[in-house]
């Protein structure tokens, strides 16, 4: 049980990459990449979790309460933003590819280029 969060992270990563490799649609490919990226959120938050820890915000709780790690949460925030921008850029490229090649199948783009 203590490994569950980490194993979920590994699973998300592996299944996301498998989707990227076998994808037949560029938008689907970007979504698979997002799934793989989500594994890093799970891993980071899993590492920072502390049994019985509260959210790291001392508003309504005394500042002596044990809290989960705020540093990995800040890292995850950065991660989410970078993930969103990567998706946006790749989707913009997918729109371009569709305009230029008339197809969103990665394999056909390959054939056209060769």
């Amino acid at each position: 049980m203590s490994l569950l969060a980490y194993v979920v992270a590994v699973w998300l990563f592996v299944v996301g990459i498998y989707g990227v490799v076998t994808s037949r649609h560029l938008v689907h490919l970007v979504m698979c990449l997002s799934v793989a990226q989500a594994s890093t959120y799970v891993l980071l938050l899993g590492i920072g979790y502390r049994k019985g820890g509260q959210a790291p915000i001392f508003g309504d709780i005394p500042s002596s309460t044990p809290v989960v790690d705020p540093v990995v949460q800040a890292l995850t925030l950065t991660d989410v933003v970078v993930g969103a921008t990567v998706s946006a850029l790749l989707l913009a490229l997918a729109v371009q590819a569709h305009k230029r090649f008339g197809s969103v199948d990665p394999d056909e783009l390959n054939a056209l280029r060769g």
Partner: peptide, 24 residues
């Protein structure tokens, strides 16, 4: 390989610190 690797991490729920603790 990744699963073997994560078994070497600190057990879930036992965050070792220290940076979060220092910040808190």
């Amino acid at each position: 390989v990744l699963v073997v690797a994560v078994t070497g991490l600190e057990p879930f729920g036992h965050y070792p610190g220290p940076y979060g603790d220092v910040l808190a």
